[in-house]
Structure formats: structure tokens, C-alpha cells
Simulated scan of single mutants.
Amino acid sequence: MTTTQLTPPYYAVIFSSRMGEAEGYAEMAERMVKLAAEQPGFLGVESARGADGFGITVSYWESEEAIAEWKANAAHLGAQEMGMARFYDAYDVRIARVERAYSGPGERPPVR
């Protein structure tokens, strides 16, 4: 699925972070993506991290209620606590409603 296959309106949770310690992070992030994919209202996720430790993950959701349920998920809460204590030097979360989406020519990486 690509983001252009999603039909607006939908919501994007934009999580940007500066990585601190990285050991164990990839495994935790993979578990969270798998768990999020099981949540009602989850539409997909895109993620990238640069060599300098700055990363951005955008998850897509059907509703604000679905986002709130994901935020309150017990395993996700544990991962958030671990992230704050161990993995992230700094982070920001933004939630946006996507009203329009379009793409240009060329192949785009899929939303997981």
C-alpha cells in the first residue's frame, strides 16, 4: 500500500526523534509496527532514520479514536517509557488530518 492508495480524510501521527542509545531499538520498533498493524483503524506506517540519528515515523489512522486507543495500548505504553528512558535524546509528536494526498511520477516505497 502506498499513501496515495489511502483515501482522505485520514490522520497522520508524525513522530520525529533524535536517537540516543540504539541497542535493542530496531527489535522494539519492529514489534510496535506489528502490534500497531493489529489495531483497529491502523492504515500503515512509513519510517526513515538518518546517519546523524534523526528519524521520522509517520503512522496513518482512520480516526482520532483509533489513535487514542493505540496511545493507550499497554505494550505501546511500555515501549514509550523505554523510548523516553533509553532510546531518544529528544522527540516530537504531531497529529494531523490529511485532507488531500497526491504523488508525482516514479516508484515510491510502500507504506508497511
Rank of each mutant, 00 (worst) to 15 (best):
W61E: 04
G44Y: 09
A29N: 09
S103D: 10
T57D: 06
R97V: 00
E69N: 09
I56K: 04
G78T: 02
G50W: 00
V58D: 06
K34G: 10
Q80L: 13
F87L: 04
E81H: 11
T7Q: 15
A79H: 02
I14S: 13
E27C: 02
Y102M: 09
A68K: 03
A66T: 01
A22C: 02
M84E: 15
A26I: 10
P105V: 11
S16I: 05
R86I: 07
R18S: 14
L77V: 15
T3N: 04
G50H: 03
S47G: 13
E81P: 02
K34N: 12
E81S: 14
F54R: 12
A22D: 12
A66N: 02
G55Y: 05
M1P: 12
R86H: 14
A48M: 08
A96Y: 06
M19D: 05
T2V: 07
A22Y: 09
I95Q: 12
E65R: 01
E81K: 15
R108G: 09
A36T: 05
P40Y: 00
G44V: 10
G50R: 13
E99C: 08
G41M: 08
F87D: 04
P9A: 07
E23I: 08
G104F: 11
L6M: 10
A72W: 02
A96P: 03
G78Q: 13
A12T: 00
R31E: 15
N73Y: 00
Y91G: 05
T2S: 10
V13S: 02
S47W: 06
P40S: 11
T4A: 13
S16V: 07
A72K: 12
R97G: 00
T7H: 11
V93D: 05
G104Y: 07
Q5G: 15
A74T: 12
D52I: 07
V58R: 08
V98P: 04
S59V: 06
V33D: 12
E64V: 01
R31V: 01
A22M: 06
E65N: 02
G78D: 14
V13H: 00
Y91M: 14
R97M: 01
E30K: 14
M1N: 07
F15Y: 10
M28Q: 11
I67S: 01
P105A: 14
E27Q: 14
E21S: 13
V45P: 03
